[in-house]
């Protein structure tokens, strides 16, 4: 049982990462690909935060009577990564909007066919 609890977080992280990866390589629709990328990204966030967790620790905000805190460093890295992540997602979505205007479709195989005609 303790074996499962010790590694459960990492296994779920791997599962989510592979789910995101699968969506990115198999989906045809670009919006869905972006959702897949975001799932992949969130799995990395969960991995970092899991590594920083200390059993019996508490949130890294100084308080009376608490001696054990979780590691604040992964929190800092991931906090900024989330905001940067949404900003880059927005750039990706903006590109999709422009692709839609240029090709009239956001399905990968359809605009590849149109590219082949040129």
């Amino acid at each position: 049982m303790s074996f499962i609890v010790d590694y459960y977080n990492y296994w779920i992280v791997v599962f989510l990462m592979m789910a995101g990866f699968y969506i990115v390589i198999s989906a045809n629709n670009l919006v869905k690909k972006v959702v897949g990328l975001n799932i992949f990204q969130t799995s990395v966030f969960i991995m970092y935060i899991s590594i920083g967790k200390v059993s019996g620790g508490s949130a890294p905000i100084l308080a009376d009577g608490i001696t054990s805190y979780s590691n604040p460093l992964p929190h800092v890295l991931i906090l900024t990564a989330i905001v940067v992540g949404v900003a880059t997602t927005a750039v990706g979505l903006a590109l999709i909007v422009r692709i839609k205007r240029a090709y009239g479709t956001v399905e990968e195989n359809e605009f590849k066919d149109k590219d082949a005609l040129i």
């Binding site: 919006v31 949130a59 989330i82 905001v83 949404v86």
Partner: peptide, 28 residues
């Protein structure tokens, strides 16, 4: 124990990212 991160994820991931994706869907 990552309260700051949770705060950011709830505001950014669930709030802003969803609005932007819905905006894209309205166009595509």
């Amino acid at each position: 124990d990552a309260v700051d991160v949770a705060f950011t994820e709830a505001a950014v991931g669930a709030g802003i990212a969803t609005v932007l994706m819905l905006g894209t869907l309205a166009l595509t």
